[in-house]
Each structure stands twice: as structure tokens, then as C-alpha cells.
Amino acid sequence: MTTGTLLLFIPACFALNMAPGPNNLLSVSNATRYGFWSASVAGVGRLIAFVGMIAIAAAGLATVLQTSEILFYAVKVVGAAYLFYLAFQLWRAAPANESTKRADSRQSIFSLARQEFLVAAGNPKAILIFTAFLPQFVDMSKPAVPQFAVLGALFLGLEWIAIAAYAYMGSHLRKWFSEPRRQQIFNRTCGSLLGVAGIGLLAARRSTSGA
């Protein structure tokens, strides 16, 4: 893998990391409710899911997901159902005062990380993206696994920056949404967007390109 390849990979990868999606939306929502650090640490759950997906892509096992209609359908239905569940929870969430937010933040890091993990793992298109995107930067004349390891590590590092960026945006929105009515509107907006993401996931079709 050459320096030129990495210089092409990094900006393309970061653009992919920063693209709006269910997980980034979840980071914004969590930051407005629990603060920057809670949302950022919760992003570890997403990274764990992505580590598994990168390993699957490196092993070539994603072809199973590409060719198995039943498996693809099962994963996307479960993922969409979980997004609908989160959307419903956000829609009906009652505005919380600052003391409640601080208490919840201390008690719910694991549950927030689990949410991030499940949202990422429940999206079969994410595995297909890794299958289509990462191999473009792998020199097939050299051992593929070490190259996947380097590219995967860079992807995870850039994803962490994206998590922090979205959490930072959410933490600033938190001040504006401290008024209960605004907070409720924001929660319901995020819930609606997660619901739309769930519908989009249900509408997703298998693609040999992973797009």
C-alpha cells in the first residue's frame, strides 16, 4: 500500500464517516440528552460493530450476505425493527431536567453503547459498504489481511472523530433545547428521522456493489 493510496483513502473515508445516518443521528440525540462525553463514549459500541464488519469483509464472508436473500432480509428487518423501537422511545420521551440528565448519564453509558452497537450491526448495507469500499484501496498483489488491518484502523480512527463531531454538535444543541418544549420537539424530530431510516432500511435491496 503506497502513500498515494492512503492520501486517496483518508478523505474519501472521512466523507463516508461524516455522512448523516442512523448512528450519527443517535450521537446527536444522545449528546442533547446526556452530554458530549456520554455520547462520545457510547460510540464505542458502534466501533465494536464496525470491527466485526471489517473482519467479515477481510475474510470475504460478506459474499454470503450478498448472495443470501433470506439472511439479508432477516438482518434488515431486525435492524429496521430496532430503529422503529428507538424512534418510538424518543417520540414518547419526557423532557428531563439537568439533574435527571446527569444521573441518567452516569447510569446509562452501557445501554447507550449497546444502542450504538445494535443500530450499526442491524444495518446489512454497512457490511456491504465495507466490502465494496475497502477493497478498492487494497493491492491484491500483496497480502490482503495486513492492508485491511491498516485501512480498518484508519477507518475506526476517523469514525471516532465523526462520533465526537456529531456529539459536539449535539452538546451545543443541548443548551438551546434545555427548554422542555424545544426538547420534546427535538426528540420527536429525531424519532421521526430514525423511523424514516428504518423505512429506508426495509426498502434496501441486495447489491453486488454494496452501494
Rank of each mutant, 00 (worst) to 15 (best):
102 R>A: 01
35 G>V: 07
188 R>F: 03
189 T>L: 15
8 L>G: 08
49 A>W: 10
184 Q>T: 12
135 P>T: 10
10 I>E: 00
76 K>R: 13
53 M>S: 07
65 L>T: 05
13 C>Q: 10
28 V>A: 13
124 P>G: 10
210 G>I: 02
17 N>E: 11
27 S>F: 12
167 A>V: 03
44 V>T: 14
70 I>G: 04
139 D>I: 11
208 T>Y: 10
62 A>V: 14
91 W>L: 03
11 P>A: 08
77 V>I: 09
80 A>W: 00
112 L>E: 12
40 S>R: 00
52 G>Y: 09
51 V>R: 05
83 L>A: 02
208 T>E: 12
81 A>T: 05
82 Y>P: 10
201 L>H: 08
134 L>I: 15
3 T>L: 15
134 L>K: 03
4 G>A: 14
128 L>T: 06
41 V>S: 04
172 H>Q: 11
144 A>Y: 00
93 A>R: 13
48 I>V: 15
118 L>Y: 06
50 F>I: 13
22 P>I: 07
6 L>Q: 05
77 V>N: 00
15 A>N: 06
100 T>N: 09
208 T>D: 11
30 N>S: 14
155 F>I: 00
71 L>K: 03
132 A>C: 11
145 V>I: 12
106 R>W: 04
154 L>S: 04
156 L>I: 13
87 A>M: 05
73 Y>E: 15
129 I>A: 12
23 N>K: 08
112 L>K: 08
107 Q>Y: 05
127 I>D: 04
167 A>W: 00
197 A>Q: 02
12 A>R: 11
41 V>T: 13
199 I>C: 12
